[in-house]
Design a protein around this nucleic acid. Structure first.
Length: 587
RNA sequence: GCGCCCUUAGCUCAGUUGGAUAGAGCAGCCGCCUUCUAAGCGGCAGGUCAGUGGUUCGAAUCCACUAGGGCGCACCA
């Protein structure tokens, strides 16, 4: 258990005692309060706002409550002193052993340090990528893919039961275009002259191999036939092929989904009908006429009665048509059925990673989830903004129409999977992200990928050198966990340990907020603390990690280094990146 | 017209769900290689947190309005 939790629990206990004893009365439950590292070192090791948080419910001034807490807290051995400051902060100074124990704990637990039971095994569905199978993965897909994947890792580390899911539409207009283009490439493979790809079909060469493979399999079977005969088999063939391509592309950056769901299946196995019937049985379906949409030119608008879903009862701005006037399902219906299906499969939390161009999605789907789950299930959408690609400092124009796309494969081949992954999380998802091919591989401080890897490599470097002084048995985690750590007293060393101690709560708060980028920022900060300490050895040789004539101090510092390496590895694990032992190029 | 998102240092961005004197990096200036990796580190300077009003012990954070920017808004699929 981390220091933060220990102290939090201790304060909680004090409050409960005070309630029983009657020295404290509350008009409500004990409100949430935080135990955190204060910004100012002068304020001690830990600070809590508990007194201020309780003030209202207790009907007493913060400093009075703080006094009660202070009395209750003194004098457990791990707390050196308690001070009340400012408007009612409680500042704690801890015994040095607290931080030393944190190191031992990290060494004992290994990269599982930071694991949490916050999620209590709740089933979480993270849906990401979900591109329709019309082409290979390109730059526009990568950010959402990485965000979703790291979020999935993160939620797992925080104790959720995570399913990674991919939803695609294998019917409809886009896929028909795929089929027609494939058919053209198929004729080309059979020796026909096809000329330029007509407007409205997919340019780019990537469907040549699909056409060729189709020709290989079926020969001239479809040549000269009417579209009504070949569209179905060609579509099926092309979709299967493209999904294989997509999976291979995603595997390049270490992404594999657990479940693939497609629209056609939902229709064919009757899920749409079931979903509709359930809404109907809840009295949420009626026939009515919607007002014309405002603010748009609606030349051909005419009021017509339609089958509607009372989504406005669940916060939607309007009710939604589920059937078109011709009686066929409206386009929203498969999405509705899909969310019903997720709820049916037991997911209490559904997270969807989408581009900001899907702005209306959440407003339409939240009512659906609320209706099917009786408002119990939670749907959140992480909207991620665009990635601007730069090469040599110049922006690269991307155009789907001309087929000028930067593919995922190209990105990985040029900068490596780890760099792509890490870099995608160096911004809040909502902010636009500049991806400069040159910068991502730059080995400088500007490049966060490098900066964090470098910290890990430095840890490894020290440990390699340590072998000259110690046996391998002396350097195992088990052995180092038992070493005396009293010599770790410098400001920089303590700061580093405090940084490490934040790992567990970073995992929890990032998971709770569903913000995987916090992991990347944490790692950059931890790397910074480590580099600071390292550099102290440049100023003062006595502060280097390996001091040949002082083995006890060296061992303590090696314990610190090993723990740091463990946290970095734990973080890289969540990021889905491989820590590098050495960065020096050319050996 | 309506809805969602954004606006923080010259630039690019964080900000732990309402806490103490708002933080990094780059760019600028000043320092640091006889070194476990200087591919780095320390320091200085830089702010009306877009604006106004409100909520309260306390607001970059929550609410309302305003300004600017992005995205979305049919029975499309």
């Amino acid at each position: 258990m981390s220091v933060f939790k220990t102290i939090h629990a201790a304060i909680q206990a004090v409050l409960e005692e005070a309630l029983v004893a009657g020295t404290l009365t509350l008009s409500s439950e004990i409100p949430a309060f935080v135990v955190e590292l204060p910004r100012e070192a002068a304020h001690g090791d830990l600070a809590t706002n508990v007194a201020m948080a309780l003030a209202k419910a207790a009907g007493k001034p913060p400093r009075v409550i703080a006094e009660i807490v202070k009395q209750g807290l003194e004098p457990p051995p791990l707390i050196a002193s308690v001070q009340i400051a400012g408007p009612g902060f409680i500042n704690l100074r801890l015994a040095p052993s607290v931080w030393q124990d944190e190191i031992r704990e990290i060494l004992r637990v290994g990269t599982r340090y930071g694991d949490s039971d916050l999620g209590k095994g709740v089933k979480v569905n993270v849906e990401y990528v979900s591109a329709n199978p019309t082409g290979p993965m390109h730059a526009g897909h990568v950010r959402g893919a990485v965000i979703g994947d790291v979020l999935a890792h993160l939620m797992q580390k925080a104790g959720y039961d995570v399913t990674r899911e991919y939803y695609f539409n294998d019917s409809g207009a886009q896929v028909d275009v795929l089929a027609r283009t494939t058919y053209l490439r198929y004729r080309e493979a059979l020796g026909e002259e096809i000329g330029a790809i007509p407007a409205g079909l997919y340019p780019g060469d990537y469907l040549k191999e699909v056409g060729a493979a189709l020709a290989e399999r079926d020969g001239a079977t479809w040549q000269g036939k009417d579209e009504s005969e070949w569209i179905e088999p060609v579509r099926t063939f092309a979709v299967a092929w493209m999904m294989r391509v997509i999976r291979d592309d995603l595997a390049l950056i270490g992404i594999t989904h657990d479940v693939f769901t497609n629209e056609r299946e939902l229709i064919e196995n009757g899920t749409l009908d079931i979903a509709f019937q359930i809404l109907d049985s809840k009295g949420l379906i009626y026939v009515g006429t919607l007002p014309p949409p405002k603010g748009k030119e609606m030349e051909d608008w005419e009021p017509v009665p339609l089958t509607l879903f009372r989504s406005s009862l669940f916060g939607d701005s309007t009710d939604r048509p589920l059937k078109k006037r011709d009686g066929y399902w409206a386009y929203i219906m498969p999405d509705i059925a899909y969310h019903y299906d997720k709820i049916r499969r037991g997911f209490g939390v559904m997270i969807n990673v989408l581009g900001t161009d899907h702005g209306g999605y959440l407003e339409r789907m939240r009512p659906v989830v609320a209706a099917f789950s009786d408002k119990k299930a939670q749907l959140t959408v992480i909207f991620n903004s665009i990635v601007k690609i730069f090469k040599n400092g110049e922006p690269v124009k991307l155009s789907k129409r001309s087929g000028n796309l930067i593919t995922l494969r190209e990105m990985v081949e040029q900068v490596g999977a780890d760099a792509v992954r890490f870099f995608m999380l160096t911004r809040d998802p909502k902010s636009p992200l500049d991806f400069d091919f040159a910068k991502v591989v730059e080995q400088t401080r500007d490049n966060p990928v490098f900066y964090v890897q470098y910290a890990h490599a430095r840890c490894c470097s020290v440990l390699r050198h340590a072998v000259e002084l110690f046996s391998a048995e002396e350097l195992t985690e088990e052995a180092l966990a038992k070493v005396a750590l009293d010599s770790l007293v410098s400001e920089e060393e303590i700061q580093l340990v405090k940084g490490m101690a934040q790992w567990a709560r970073t995992v929890e708060s990032a998971a709770q907020a569903q913000e995987p980028h916090r992991i990347a920022f944490y790692l950059m900060e931890l790397a910074g603390l480590f580099h600071t300490l390292w550099n102290k050895g440049n100023d003062n040789a006595a502060l280097r990690f390996i001091v040949a004539d002082d083995k006890p101090t060296t061992l303590a510092r090696l314990a610190l280094i090993t723990a740091t390496r463990t946290i970095l590895r734990s973080g890289f694990g969540v990021m889905g990146c491989t820590p590098m032992d050495e960065l020096r190029s050319g050996g």
